[in-house]
Design a protein around this nucleic acid. Structure first.
Length: 550
RNA sequence: UGGGCCAUAGCCAAGCGGUAAGGCACAGGACUUUGACUCCUGCAUUCGAUGGUUCGAAUCCAUCUGGCCCAGCCA
């Protein structure tokens, strides 16, 4: 009876803050850098940030964190917006851009200089590294650390005006070169980069670093809780240093959570990018990937993804969700929503010898017996059918319920048939099975005097349409779900299997992204990239859970 | 070797001093015009380990062990 789902640790923190009246409104955000496509891990951030804002009556922002023009592309900003839209979260009227705050960020940098908390440093990239020290050695102050405010101001404006080359100078926060936290050893907050920005063009040749820009972006937007992943824990002290020294009255609070990993699946933008760049997959939306675009093309629904994220939970413990949970979620979502149709992936012929050769019957079955509102479909039946290769066995193992010589099974929606003989090709593969049917066993609701253990599906060979079925195995590394050190990937060579089969006539009218259950073969989605009027290509979304293996 | 974080079943995850929720997976059974679905049933004498405090500890304290992150002018 416990309908109360327990609150996660973030909600507990937020409720504490609410009690202490630290914020007027709960505002969250999803701040991706447009340097790649979004994947299932980003979906976790999107969904939690959004649902928390919604739960506490606040709002949620989508903000492109575009502070490094070197890595960012318009293709990526478009794909991110498309994916977030598809997930159906409400981010208000418009998409926000960190780059729209460059003027304000510059002003805050000036403020810090004026407070004596930032200075222009002439150290080279290697020198900065040396001066910083390491885990075991404290850092040393930069020789430029004690420039006067006036000098810093002058130099920083000159940086902005393009007087210096890339790497020649930086603006650094003046904190503590002896801090055990390396992020506090006078971090660089502005660097020079003479690059065209996708949004601001050539206006700037200095760009703020993430550590400086991010807290400001949050504070400027009135974010109350800035939820991010665990690797930013060490950056939190600087985040707080920035919002406090820039004098925000109700500064946002950063809370970290663990990333979502999937067992045996390659997650992580870096790794996916390599697979795309090396042509191991055919693009960011290759259905073997777990990018949002790929999952969508494969046929996953946003409902399933949301449910998966919620069932996976959120905590600070590094963990890896079971792929089986994702599969459970998509089956659960599609179960009552999809039409259940007949399709034969790996066909062999079934000839019914005592059925009139010139006769064709039209039969009817509900699209989905568990959801009769979906209606019914009509399909034809004749003496020549296609059945699945798996549904006939020359040498049936124990407890095999389907067709073998002498055994009677039900043809779904049609008749009982009994196999009599079969033919093979030169390699010994079955090509045709011959059978007889009993006309008194028509499956139209009337009582039949006997029961059969097996039911198999079929399509009428005389009216069937050809189709291609793409069956995916996950692009996995059994051990790590990562690329190897040398950049190669131990992906499953059988990650994509293509079957040429047949579909019942009605399915030839299917359109891109139509989803069906093909009886025992699982759930399929019409591929929007590869299907044409002549040939439909179906991506298998997920297999059925099965307790029998062949 | 410095700093930060984490540890509850095969995988997630509640639990916040009163005697181990829930989901996935798995196993058994019933039902079935999909070996699916649905429906029952089972599944941690124990919370990384060891000590301590307490009438009582997964929860508090101490020590230890294991895992993750950090030395970009990336985010």
């Amino acid at each position: 009876m416990e309908n109360n789902i327990s609150k996660n640790f973030i909600e507990q923190e937020i409720e504490k803050d609410l009690q202490e009246k630290k914020y007027d409104e709960i505002v969250t955000r999803f701040p991706p850098e447009p340097n790649g496509y979004l994947h299932i891990g980003h979906a976790k951030s999107i969904i939690y940030n959004y649902s928390i804002a919604k739960k506490y009556g606040g709002h949620f922002n989508l903000r492109l964190d575009d502070t490094n023009p070197l890595k960012e592309k318009n293709e990526y900003v478009n794909s991110i917006i498309e994916d977030v839209n598809w997930l159906g979260v409400d981010y208000g009227k418009k998409v926000l851009y960190a780059s729209n705050y460059f003027d304000k960020m510059f002003d805050y940098a000036i403020l810090l200089i004026n407070k004596g908390l930032a200075y222009v440093c002439d150290l080279s990239i290697d020198e900065v590294k040396k001066y910083r020290g390491d885990y075991n050695n404290v850092g040393t102050d930069s020789p430029y650390r004690n420039r006067t405010i006036e000098e810093n101001l002058k130099l920083f404006y000159e940086m902005k005006d393009g007087k210096y080359k890339d790497g020649e100078k930086t603006l650094r926060a003046k904190i503590d070169m002896k801090s055990p936290n390396l992020n506090m050893r006078d971090p660089v907050i502005y660097r020079i980069a003479h690059l065209k920005h996708h949004n601001t063009g050539d206006k700037w040749c200095i760009y703020p670093m993430y550590d400086f820009a991010h807290p400001l972006e949050d504070a400027i937007e009135g974010i109350s809780h800035s939820l991010c992943t665990l690797e930013f824990e060490d950056h939190r002290p600087f985040y707080e240093w920035v919002v406090n020294n820039c004098e925000f009255k109700k500064p946002p609070r950063q809370i970290e959570f663990a990333k979502l990993y999937l067992t045996n699946v390659i997650t992580g933008k870096r790794y996916i990018k390599q697979l795309v760049d090396k042509g191991i997959v055919d693009g960011w939306d290759d259905p073997r990937l777990v990018t949002i675009a790929a999952l969508r093309r494969r046929g996953y629904t946003k409902e399933a993804i949301k449910n998966f994220i919620e069932l996976s939970g959120i905590s600070k413990a590094n963990s890896s969700s079971d792929y089986e949970l994702l599969e459970y979620c998509i089956r659960e979502d599609l179960k009552l929503k999809t039409k259940r149709m007949m399709a034969i992936l790996d066909p062999i012929k079934l000839v019914i010898e005592n059925y009139p050769k010139d006769k064709t019957e039209v039969l009817e079955l509900p699209y989905n017996v568990e959801n009769l509102e979906l209606g019914t479909h009509k399909f034809t039946f004749s003496n020549e059918l296609y059945i699945e290769r798996d549904d006939f066995s020359i040498d049936p193992p124990n407890k095999y319920y389907r067709l073998f010589i002498g055994n009677e099974v039900r043809l779904m929606g049609a008749y009982y048939v009994k196999a009599t003989r079969y033919e093979t090709d030169n390699n010994g593969n079955v090509t045709t099975v011959y059978a007889t049917y009993d006309e008194n066993t028509k499956q139209d609701g009337r009582q039949v005097d006997r029961k059969v253990k097996g039911t198999i599906h079929f399509v009428d060979a005389k009216t069937a349409h050809q189709a291609k079925f793409k069956i995916f195995n996950n692009l996995v590394d059994e051990e790590k779900g990562k690329l190897n050190e040398d950049g190669t990937v131990n992906y499953n060579k059988n990650s994509l299997v293509i079957k040429n089969g047949f579909i019942e006539k009605e399915l030839s009218l299917s359109k891109a992204n139509d989803k069906f259950q093909f009886m025992r073969n699982g759930y399929f989605n019409v591929d929007y990239k590869e299907s044409t009027n002549d040939l439909l290509v179906f991506n298998r979304i997920v297999d059925l859970k099965s307790s029998f293996k062949l």
